[in-house]
Nucleic acid binder design. Sequence first.
DNA 1: TATTGTTATACTCTATAACTATA
DNA 2: TATAGTTATAGAGTATAACAATA
Lengths: 179, 179
Amino acid sequence: MTVSKTADKTAEKSSEKPADTAKGRKDAAEAQGAAEALQLGELSEQLGYVLKRAQLKVFENFLRCMASLQLTPAQFSVLLLVEKNPGRNQTEIASTLGILRPNFVALLDNLESRDLCARIRSTNDRRSHILVLTDKGKAVLTRAKKLVATKHEARLNDLLGQANREALIEMLSKIANEF
Amino acid sequence: MTVSKTADKTAEKSSEKPADTAKGRKDAAEAQGAAEALQLGELSEQLGYVLKRAQLKVFENFLRCMASLQLTPAQFSVLLLVEKNPGRNQTEIASTLGILRPNFVALLDNLESRDLCARIRSTNDRRSHILVLTDKGKAVLTRAKKLVATKHEARLNDLLGQANREALIEMLSKIANEF
DNA sequence: TATTGTTATACTCTATAACTATA
DNA sequence: TATAGTTATAGAGTATAACAATA
C-alpha cells in the first residue's frame, strides 16, 4: 500500500505518505464505536451520491493494483492516449482528457522525468511538443494493462459479471457524452 | 448559470465567479479548432475513466438544476441525511457521508448561516452538537427534492430509461459498498 | 494577431495534528 | 484518558491570467 496518489510535481517525492487517500474516509466512517448506523434514506437512490462513492472506490482499487508501477489513473490515461495517438502535441492530448494545458505541464514533467514519455519539438510547428512513449514507457504501459486486466477489471467482473460490467460502462459513457 | 460550486466558507461570497466548473473542461476540449478528434482506444473501456467523466457531468447538471436554491451535492446530501436522522451529532452525520469532521465545520457553518439547519448543544453530552433542519431548511429541502426529481432525474430517465436507471444505481451501489 | 507551452496564482477538496471543553 | 467540535495547515486537483517563442 502507501500509494502516493499525488506524484505529479516536477521533483517527485516518493516519501512514505501517512496513508492512502482511502484512509481518511475509512477513519471517518469507523471513528466512533459503531453507534447504530444511520438511515441513508433517499440518498441511496441519488445518482450523484452513488456515482461519487463508486468512483472513489474504483480509483482506490486502481491505485492499489498499480502500486508496483506507481501510476495514477490520470497518468495511465495519458500513457494510453499517447500510445494510441503518437505524434500529437500536448494541447491535443490534454484537452482530450479534459486536462487544462497549465495543469498538464507538471503531469508530463513527472512522466518524462521517469523516462516513460518524451516531448519532441515539432519540425512543422516549432511551438508545439509532440508526445511519444519511450521504450520504457511502452514496457511499463504493457505491464500496467496486464495489472488492470488481471486485478482491477477481474475484480469488477467477479462483482457484477461480464455482461453487467459492459452494460455499466456503456451507460456511464452515455452519461459522460450526452448528459 | 454561474453557480458557485464552492460556497462552503463561513462568509458566503455569492460573487459572479468567471465560470461554472464545466467551462474549463469544455474549453480544454474545444480550444483548438477541432483538428481531427483523437482515438480514445482502450480508454473508453476503462471503468475509472468513464466513471469519473460521468460523475463530473452529473454534478454539473445537478448544480444547474439547483441554481435557484444554491445547493451543492454535498449540501443536499447533508440536508437529506439530517432530515432522515434527526437528533444525530456532527460526527455521525459527517462520517456517514465520508466527510472528515474538520471539513464538516465550514460546510455546516454555511448551512447554519443560511438558516437551513441548526446545531443544538446536547443535554446528555454537552460536547456534541445535535443537528436538526430549521423550518426554512425543511422547506428548501422539499423544493430541492422536487427540482431533483423533475429536472435532474427526469433527464436521466430520458437518457437511459427507468429500468436502466435503476439497474445503474444498483450496480454503482454495489461497487461503492463491496469493491 | 493568434497559438503552444509555460509560470504564477487562486480556490476547492481532502487530509492530519493539535487545541478546548467536556466526559 | 478519551471524545466532540474546532482551528490551523498542508497537499492534490482544478481554474484563470499572462508571458516568451513561434506562427
